[in-house]
Design a binder for these strands. Structure first.
Lengths: 167, 167
DNA sequence: TCAAACTTTCAAAAATAATTGAAAGTTTTT
DNA sequence: AAAAACTTTCAATTATTTTTGAAAGTTTGA
């Protein structure tokens, strides 16, 4: 396969995969593009390569920066802004995990705690509801704590974790 | 909080959370409803409680069964079909993980392998592309293998894994 | 301070995804 | 074998999400 063809295929695939995971396709594509670019990339270049509008590029770059996985980079002597992606995969996974925990898991835990505090109702349905949501709370809490622990390692936690699991 | 209110809040929240994760809102809601229902639930009841059409209920129940996390249950003496959810959380997580691996991770690995096999081009950009996609391949492969290992435990792997991580 | 160079914002338009509902399909009962 | 009881399918509709592009905003350099 040729470089251009491969790069394109990678960007497209990453975009489609992002969609399935609830990530805006363009955002995933921009991220993919930056991941495999050695040099910082300008907004102009991103628009060009992905054939998207300026507004679209701007908003999705902002989104990626909010996730903490894309940074601005200034090229000396250049007026406009360039962008680079966090390329260290351990660091990338850590940031995504932490951000998802903050944005999604923590709020879900809050709701689970609230709803498992049903009072008064002694019906079997109600009892089962409380038991089930409590179990879910414990499970999600444990999973979230695991993410915390795992991302403390920082360096190559995935590899180290593999070692442990494999005995 | 009252039981009805709590149940409703749980179902709504789960639906919203599902959306963020790329899961059809109704599918997530049906799953939530079944998770906290002690008795098998009929399609009629699901339509009623979630205020959705028959077609919608039918298709999303099919989807949930394809994921292997909802089953048909026949009530003795009853003509119509009832549905129940996999309620064991370890089992649930295992099934979801395995299914996502099969549907999404495995195909992604395939593409990563393909695109990292760029040939001929000796430019710095091309070299960086190959290096980066290879790293990504290794990382994703390792993560996928971890899922395999972890789901082998079957019983309470999350708890056991926590023990290990916490030393 | 002004204007050029660039970025952000956001209402409107376009694209995508989900939902409906009625017809077609299936299974069970009489 | 026909009707009754139920489920599935899918073309059309509706809702949601994403994208555009031009105006407003910002920063830099003369």
């Amino acid at each position: 396969m040729q470089f251009d063809e491969a790069k394109n295929k990678f960007v497209q695939t990453w975009g489609a995969l992002g969609s399935q995971w609830g990530i805006n396709k363009t955002m995933a594509q921009i991220h993919a593009l930056l991941m495999v670019s050695k040099e910082p990339v300008s907004m102009e270049d991103i628009m060009q390569e992905l054939q998207i509008s300026r507004g679209n590029a701007s908003m999705n770059l902002r989104g990626l920066m909010d996730w903490g996985i894309v940074y601005k980079a200034n090229k000396p002597g250049e007026r406009r802004e360039f962008f680079i992606a966090e390329k260290d995969l351990d660091e990338l996974a850590t940031k995504i995990a932490k951000e998802r925990s903050k944005r999604e898991i923590k709020p879900a835990l809050k709701v689970l705690k609230e709803v498992s505090a049903v009072e008064g109702d002694t019906s079997e349905e109600a009892k089962h509801f409380v038991a089930q949501t409590k179990k879910l709370y414990d499970f999600v809490l444990k999973a979230d704590e695991m993410i915390d622990k795992v991302t403390e390692y920082k360096d190559n936690w995935l590899g180290k974790l593999m070692m442990k699991i494999l005995r």
